[in-house]
């Protein structure tokens, strides 16, 4: 990466390596949506409040509308398009969301899935107030919070859970 108005970064998005030339003020959400055409990542408030733009960067849930794309240089980015397996089998968290009937309008769902996935990666056994503390980061305009909560509680413990 160089210190110019335009720079080249290398990153992995959903397991696929990319080398892209970007402007230094490009936001990560615009990189994934406009340059890589991964439009499952939403833009809503555009100021980091709602979480519709959540992606995982090296496993951390990140507000992509407030992250400069250059900060993802060398990182592994996961968007909603990369959560399911390559054969389209749903991820554990996606399955729990599906079985709980989560989607209403669906606008916040990609961000919610990624937020929940980040939690699940950190915490092998979803439990109690911890789940609420994580899920309160993202806004659902249909107020489907209880369904999200149930979905995450119903996610089976990871195989490595104690």
């Amino acid at each position: 990466m160089t210190t110019r108005d335009r720079l080249t970064i290398r990153l992995t998005v959903n397991g696929e390596a990319h080398t892209v030339e970007i402007s230094s003020n490009l936001m990560l959400v615009d990189l994934v949506r406009e340059r890589l055409n991964l439009q499952g990542t939403r833009v809503a408030c555009d100021q980091g409040a709602c979480g519709a733009c959540t992606v995982l960067v090296d496993g951390r849930p990140i507000t992509a509308c407030l992250s400069f794309a250059f900060t993802a240089d060398g990182a592994a980015v996961l968007t909603i398009e990369g959560v399911a397996g390559s054969d389209n089998t749903l991820d554990t968290v996606q399955l729990a969301f599906h079985d709980s009937g989560v989607p209403q309008c669906g606008f916040c769902t990609p961000g919610m899935v990624l937020l929940a996935k980040a939690y699940y990666m950190q915490q092998p056994m979803p439990e109690g107030a911890d789940v609420e503390r994580w899920l309160d980061a993202n806004i659902c305009r249909c107020s489907g919070y209880q369904v999200f909560r149930r979905a995450l509680h119903s996610t089976p413990p990871r195989e490595d859970a104690p």
Binding site: G48, G51, T54, R60, P61, I62, T63, L66, S67, L115, R133, W134, D136, A137, N138
Partner: peptide, 12 residues
Amino acid sequence: IAGLGNIRIRMQ
């Protein structure tokens, strides 16, 4: 600190 912002903001 656990009560600041939300988990996304605290991670960033």
